[in-house]
Amino acid sequence: MKDAVLIASVGKRFGAVQALQEVNLSVGEGELFGFIGADGAGKTTLFRILVTLLLPDEGRAEVLGLDVVRSYRDIRKRIGYMPGKFSLYPDLSVEENLRFFASVFGTTVEKNYELIRDIYSQLEPFKTRRAGKLSGGMKQKLALSCALVHRPEVLFLDEPTTGVDAVSRKEFWQMLGRLREQGMTILVSTPYMDEAVLCDRIAFMQEGRMLALDTPTGITTLFRKPLFAIRARETWRLLCVLRVSPHAASVYAFGIALHYTDNRPSIRADELLAALQADGFTDVSVSVIQPGIEDTFIALMEEKQGAADE
């Protein structure tokens, strides 16, 4: 597989802030690649370097085999970029925005309509509405249509689903899945851990560094301790009790259950259950579970934090 994107030892500093440090990775052609991390992790800086809007301080990067510094003009014609902040013209209508972006890239909406039909058809009833007057979900669909209108070979989507409701997020990822089936390379960043499983491979980003890089299933093998899901009627009291337990290695709320690791290596679920029942918890259950992406991300964050504290 050829590399669509290559990043080698890239670093970027803004004054005292090291926004990116020693980032290395490559994205294959046709891959759907996710950058997972919170605000301030460096995702946007990395994207801005790749789409040739920002120069790296260290290292080098290539998109479609072209250097991001020397060949920025050629790269720009062949990629699509949807920034995190809504960047279309609020005073132009839906249709005017789309035509404008098509004309900038020397093409027409009609020529590539097939590619965007799936997404744009949902906007067509509102095509005369000003972009500034659209709801959040519709703005996002229009921005994606504009990023696709010149049929780019690589698509960069910077936090396309931040602030978007759970249902619209699901629909957005279905659209990405269909674009991927057509062979487009997609790089997407997100703070939502549940979206990571929909990518071919993911990179965890935290404070400018890559914490891990693997397939969604592969990455969870970095979680090495037995993980327990504990449920009780009084979740909050359970959390408080477990936190002060001398045996607790980690306790985090995950919806209706707590995810717990113990610092005794061979502890069993039934032993934990008995201890909690002795503490007066009724209606409590303990089971061994497979760690998910979010469990793994938290564990890697803590590992790094622990190392930094020493």
């Binding site: 991390g37 919170a38 931040t162 602030g163 703070p191 935290q206 985090y252 979010e294 991300f297 964050m301």
Partner: peptide
């Protein structure tokens, strides 16, 4: 939306 875009540990501390 107090926890939008926040890392998973900070999000839980907020709760």
């Amino acid at each position: 939306e107090p926890t939008g875009g926040v890392d998973p540990v900070t999000r839980r501390r907020f709760w």
